[in-house]
Design a protein around this nucleic acid. Structure first.
Length: 308
DNA sequence: AGCTCTTCCTGAAAGC
DNA sequence: TGCTTTCAGGAAGAGC
C-alpha cells in the first residue's frame, strides 16, 4: 500500500521519464476514480509535462501552459493529481508492451511510450486541478512528514486528545504517513499506538518525530515497502518490507526485547506493537483485557505476500 | 473533538 | 473439491 516512501519512489522514477514529454492521446477504461474523465480525455492531449512532484501521498504532474495557438482556453487545468490508494500503480512502458489487467488509464507519450495507471481495487484517485485548487489542497493536507520541523510537530500534536496513531494517520495533521509507517515509527519511538497525544511528554513527541523521519528516510533508500501490490515506475518492488519491525509480524518476537508482537485495532486500524517496549496507557475506563478482546482473528494476517 | 461504522473494490485465504 | 465469507485498507461522510 503506497505511503510516502512508495510515492516518493514512484515520483523519482517518473522524473527520469516524464518532464519534457508531450501527451499525445489518452485512453480510458473504468473511470469511477477520476473526478472528471471527460475533461481528462479532452484537455490533456497536446499538453507537455513540465514537472513531477510529491504532495503527501499524491503524485503531482505539472503541465506546461498551453501553447498559444488560437484556441487557447487559459483556464485549462494544469495539475494532474494521482493518488495510488491501496493498489494503484503508475508506470511508464513501451506502448506495444501488453498492459496488465485493471489498467484503466493510458497516456500515450511522444517518445513511443505510455504512462499507465493500473489499480485493482480502484481506491485511487485522479484529479485535474487549476492553480488555485493546488494551494487549497496543500493546505488541507498539512505538513509533509519528511520535512516537518520539531516545533511544528509539537504544535500539531500537543494537547490533542486523540490517540497518537489516529493523528499520525490524519493527513490534515501530517501528510504522507500510512498504517505501515505509523506502526514502525511508534515501535521505534517506544510509544503505544493508543497513547493520547495530550498525555505525551515533549521528549516523547520529539522522539516520535525523529522515528518517523528515520523510518521514512530508510524506506525511501530501499525504494519503499512492497506488501501486496506496490511497484515503482519501472515495475520493480521495494525492499523495506524486509526491515519491518512490527508491521505484519503479529505473534513473532520483538527484535528489541523478544516479547511477542501483538495486533489490536486502534483508530479503526490494525495496529502492531510490542507490549513490552511500547507499554499500554493506563486508561481507567478501558482495562487492557477489554482491548485485548477487540483483537481480530490473526491467521489471515499471514496472507500478505512478502516480496522475497 | 474524536470515536465508530459504513462505503467504495478486488483477490486471497479461511471456513465449511 | 468448491462455494461462501471474511478481510485488508486510504479517505470521506454519517451519526453519536
Amino acid at each position: 500500500m503506497p505511503e510516502l516512501p512508495e510515492v516518493e519512489t514512484v515520483v523519482r522514477g517518473l522524473r527520469t521519464a516524464l518532464p519534457g514529454r508531450c501527451i499525445v492521446s489518452v485512453r480510458l477504461g473504468k473511470t469511477d476514480f477520476i473526478d472528471d474523465p471527460v475533461t481528462l480525455g479532452e484537455s490533456l492531449p497536446g499538453r507537455r509535462i513540465a514537472a513531477v512532484e510529491r504532495i503527501g501521498k499524491f503524485i503531482h504532474l505539472q503541465l506546461a501552459p498551453e501553447a498559444s495557438n488560437g484556441s487557447t482556453h487559459s483556464d485549462a487545468p494544469s495539475h494532474l493529481m494521482v493518488h495510488l490508494g491501496m493498489t494503484g500503480r503508475l508506470v511508464v512502458r513501451a506502448a506495444d508492451e501488453p498492459a496488465p489487467p485493471h489498467t484503466h488509464v493510458y497516456f500515450q507519450l511522444d517518445d513511443g511510450r505510455e504512462l499507465r495507471y493500473t489499480d485493482i481495487r480502484r481506491f485511487g484517485q485522479m484529479l485535474l486541478l487549476r492553480d488555485a485548487k493546488i494551494a487549497e489542497l496543500r493546505e488541507r493536507l498539512g505538513e509533509d512528514a519528511l520535512t516537518i520541523s520539531a516545533d511544528e510537530f509539537q504544535r500539531r500534536l500537543a494537547g490533542r486528545r486523540a490517540r497518537i496513531k489516529a493523528l499520525l494517520l490524519d493527513q490534515s495533521v501530517l501528510r504522507g504517513v500510512g498504517n505501515i509507517y505509523a506502526d514502525e515509527s511508534l515501535w521505534r519511538a517506544r510509544l503505544h499506538p493508543a497513547r493520547l497525544a495530550a498525555k505525551l511528554k515533549k521528549e516523547d513527541i520529539d522522539r516520535l518525530r525523529q522515528a518517523v523521519q528515520r523510518v521514512l528516510g530508510d524506506a525511501i533508500r530501499l525504494r519503499g515497502s512492497s506488501i501486496s501490490d506496490f511497484v515503482d515506475s519501472n515495475g520493480q518492488p521495494g525492499g523495506y518490507q524486509r526491515w519491518h519491525r512490527v508491521y505484519a509480524r503479529e505473534d513473532e518476537p520483538c527484535y528489541r526485547c523478544h516479547a511477542i508482537i501483538r495486533r489490536v485495532i486502534v483508530a479503526g486500524r490494525s495496529s502492531h506493537f510490542c507490549p513490552r517496549c511500547q507499554p499500554a496507557p493506563r486508561t481507567p475506563g478501558k482495562p487492557p483485557a477489554k482491548r485485548a478482546a477487540r483483537t481480530r482473528r490473526t491467521s489471515s494476517q499471514k496472507r500478505f505476500r512478502r516480496t522475497r
